[in-house]
Amino acid sequence: MSTSTTSDKPTSVWGSHESQPPVPDGAVSVTVKLLRFNPEVDSEPHWQSFEVPALPTDRVLNLLHYVKWYLDGTLTFRRSCAHGICGSDAMQINGINRLACKVLIKDLLAKKGKPTTITLAPIKGLPVNKDLLVDMEPFFEAFRAVKPYLITYGNEPTRERIQSAADRERFDDTTKCILCACCTSSCPVYWNDGSYFGPAAIVNAHRFIFDSRDEGAEERLDILNDAEGVWRCRTTFNCTDACPRGIEVTKAIQEVKRALLFKRV
């Protein structure tokens, strides 16, 4: 992806009522360098920089809000719960996939008081709609393809199915997924070939394959044994590093591979 650089200073349309909040004590000025793209006017994405006052305890999301609220009201990104549960604000922060609501500025400040630049770009491997907002549909399509729901045969119990604490623990890790796409969009295999299911879909298959109540493991393993399935994984561990929930994604993929080997060989 080629990008051009602009140094356009944003101008505000708001008249005399425009007011920026007072800069709090202890704030430092940081440069937020954003990859902008507006399909209505741009043929290619381009970088745009803003100077933003930030507290070390602020999060990247606060900086984005500052730009949107006071400098450029057209800046577009997703966010919802703002503390790492909904998984809406995945983006590349200094080149690494993270949730903007969970990265503190103090961890990004340059050493010895040098000027700090924070670069923000959309996650890779998914089409960009506008600025930091990508089309998530291919990601959710892969999620739906692995049958991410409990499959059972026979009569439903009147109350709950019994599950021991140990059986429940077996797949606890992969139930923590928030479908933010940090893992899938950090995967080099996924960048090169969007037909690969990607780590998140495999994590969500794992969540049911290893659920003692589920009887659909065979069906899902068949799907994942496909050419676009788990065997495309090259074990680069990018996904595990990227997961904001600390899920051992690569391990989960390995467990699915092993399940396939044991069943087939």
Partner: peptide, 20 residues
């Protein structure tokens, strides 16, 4: 409604005898 949600597949922490 909770039991029904469990049959949909919801994960719950369990008692020693495996109930919700």
């Amino acid at each position: 409604r909770v039991w029904e949600l469990e049959t949909y597949g919801a994960l719950f922490d369990r008692t020693a005898d495996g109930r919700i």
